[in-house]
């Protein structure tokens, strides 16, 4: 007895929504960042699930592999994004003594 694909997709949607809600409501820069990582992870999950579905429908594993390679790239880009983003936070913290995004309002108005 295996698990229906729709369950994986549903889980991915839920994780994505949770991440999106967090990214919109949190004010701590790092927490926003973590929420975005959560959304990326949800997208990865749905990609792998879709890859499997298409592979089974076409009887060819190539599409499953393509999906996995895309996720591989997403992981690499996420690593780059985290490095630069965290460095940005350090730089901002040095100047403003806070990473609360509501107080980083120099460019407002």
């Amino acid at each position: 007895m295996t698990v229906p694909v729709s369950w994986y997709l549903l889980l991915a949607v839920m994780l994505f929504a949770i991440g999106a809600a967090g990214a919109l409501t949190r004010r701590n820069g790092i927490a926003i960042f973590l929420s975005i990582e959560l959304m990326l992870n949800a997208a990865n999950l749905s990609l792998v699930a879709y890859g499997r579905v298409v592979a089974e429908r076409t009887m060819d594993l190539a599409s499953a592999h393509t999906a996995q390679i895309i996720v591989f790239f997403v992981l690499a880009v996420a690593a780059a994004e985290a490095a630069v983003g965290l460095a940005l936070f350090i730089a901002v913290y040095r100047k403003r003594r806070t990473i609360d995004v509501d107080r980083l309002n120099l460019l407002r108005w």
């Binding site: 694909v5 949607v13 929504a17 949770i18």
Partner: peptide
């Protein structure tokens, strides 16, 4: 909005892929 998002996308994917079990 998160709840609405889950409801819409979730119902679509449920409808499209219900009964599709992975081998």
């Amino acid at each position: 909005s998160a709840a609405i998002f889950v409801a819409i996308v979730g119902s679509i994917s449920l409808q499209a892929y219900t009964g599709r079990f992975l081998e």
